[in-house]
C-alpha cells in the first residue's frame, strides 16, 4: 500500500482484477469483477459493483449532500459540513444491537480525495454511474479503461437563476445536451423576453421543462434558482434512486411530471413508515427524521427544494427547530 503525498489517498497498485485497493482509516475497500468489498474492524460487507458505483458517484458529486447518504442498509456517510463520518451498520438496528456497527470521522478533503480516486479507478470506460441503466453498459469485469469525463461532470449551481446574464446557461444540442428519449414530446420553445436597454441582465426567463428534458444524468439535483437560502434543485429521475437519503433537515419534493413512488422509513432504524406516490403537481415534505428512496418507472421531472441554511442541522438536532415543516 502506498500513500500519495499530495492527497493523502492510501491506495495499492492494481490487484488481480486491475483495480486499486483503498484504505481509509480502518476501513478497507477493494473491487473484483462483480462486487465492492468493504471491511472494518468488526465486520465486512459486499455490494454489487453497479449499485456501489452509482451511490459513490452521487456522494462524490454532491460533496456528501445534506445529512446521510446510505449506500445500502449497511454502508454510508454522514455530512458534518467540514468533516464526514464513514459508517458501517450505524443506521441498521440489528448491527447496532449486536454492537457490530463502526463509524469513523474524517476531514472532508481526505475522504473526498479517496472517494474521487476510487470512483475514477473503479469505473470502466463503458459504464456511466450517473446514467439510467437503460442508457449505459454494465460495469462488470476486469479493469477496462476509465470514464473520467462522466464521473467528473461539473455540477450546475446557479447564483440567481439559469438564463440570467453571466449565470448558468440553458442546455441545447450545441452544449452537448440532446433531448432524452423519454422526453421527446416535451415542448422546447423558450419564453419571449423583451428587456429594455440597460435591463438585459435583470429580465430573464427560460424553459425549465426543456432544460430538464435535456439532462443527461439521473437522480442528480442541481441548483437552477436561488432565493437567499432557498434553492430549487430540479432533477430527472429514472429507475431507482441509487442511495437511501437520510435527512438532517426538512426537504421538499414538487413533482413536475409523471410519477415517483417514495419508500419512507425511520432514519435511525430503517423501519418502514409510509409509501408516498407523487404525480404532476403534487407537493410533499420529507421530514427531518426519515430516510427515503424513490422509484420512477418512466423518466420524470422532480423539483427538489432545499433550505441550505448551515444552522438547520444543529437547530433540529438540538430540538430548537421541528422535525416537521408545519403543524396543523
Amino acid at each position: 500500500m502506498s500513500t500519495a503525498q499530495d492527497s493523502g489517498v492510501q491506495t495499492s497498485g492494481p490487484n488481480n482484477f486491475g483495480y486499486n485497493d483503498y484504505v481509509l482509516g480502518s476501513f478497507k475497500f477493494n473491487r473484483d469483477e462483480f462486487f465492492a468489498h468493504v471491511s472494518w474492524p468488526t465486520g465486512s460487507h459486499s455490494i454489487s459493483i453497479d449499485n456501489f458505483l452509482r451511490a459513490l458517484q452521487r456522494d462524490c458529486a454532491w460533496d456528501f449532500f445534506y445529512g446521510t447518504v446510505n449506500f445500502d442498509h449497511v454502508v454510508g456517510t454522514i455530512n458534518h459540513y467540514g468533516t464526514v463520518d464513514l459508517f458501517a451498520g450505524r443506521f441498521n438496528e440489528a448491527y447496532r444491537k449486536a454492537e457490530l456497527d463502526h463509524s469513523e470521522n474524517f476531514q472532508t478533503p481526505k475522504i473526498r480525495a479517496t472517494f474521487h480516486s476510487m470512483l475514477d479507478n473503479w469505473t470502466n470506460s463503458t459504464f456511466d454511474p450517473f446514467a439510467s441503466p437503460a442508457e449505459t453498459q454494465a460495469p462488470w469485469g476486469v479493469k477496462s479503461g476509465s470514464n473520467t469525463d462522466a464521473v467528473t461532470r461539473r455540477r450546475v449551481a446557479a447564483a440567481r437563476m439559469v438564463g440570467v446574464k453571466g449565470d448558468e446557461q440553458i442546455r441545447t444540442d450545441a452544449t452537448g445536451h440532446p433531448i432524452n428519449r423519454m422526453f421527446a414530446d416535451v415542448p422546447q420553445g423558450e419564453p419571449q423576453v423583451f428587456a429594455e436597454p440597460g435591463f438585459e441582465g435583470e429580465i430573464a426567463a427560460f424553459n425549465l421543462f426543456a432544460y430538464l428534458s435535456r439532462s443527461n444524468v439521473t437522480w442528480n439535483p442541481s441548483v437552477v434558482s436561488v432565493c437567499k437560502e432557498s434553492l430549487y434543485c430540479p432533477t430527472t429521475e429514472e429507475y431507482i434512486l441509487p442511495i437511501v437519503h437520510g435527512n438532517d433537515r426538512v426537504e421538499w419534493f414538487i413533482q413536475l411530471s409523471d410519477e415517483i413512488v417514495w419508500d419512507v422509513a425511520d432514519r435511525e432504524t430503517g423501519a418502514p413508515r409510509a409509501k408516498v406516490t407523487m404525480r404532476a403537481g403534487d407537493c410533499a415534505a420529507m421530514p427531518a427524521d426519515i430516510r427515503h428512496q424513490g422509484f420512477s418507472s418512466k423518466r420524470s421531472m422532480l423539483l427538489v427544494w432545499e433550505n441550505n441554511s448551515a444552522d438547520l442541522p444543529g437547530l433540529i438536532a438540538s430540538g430548537k427547530a421541528p422535525q416537521y415543516p408545519v403543524s396543523f
Binding site: 413508515r273 409510509a274 409509501k275 408516498v276 403534487d282 407537493c283 415534505a285 408545519v326
Partner: peptide
C-alpha cells in the same frame, strides 16, 4: 397522488396538489 401510511401521521408529509 396519495400516501399509504405504514406507521406515521400523514400530516408529517404536508401533501397537497398545487
Amino acid at each position: 397522488g396519495r400516501i399509504d401510511i405504514i406507521n406515521d401521521d400523514p400530516k408529517h408529509y404536508v401533501f397537497s396538489n398545487l
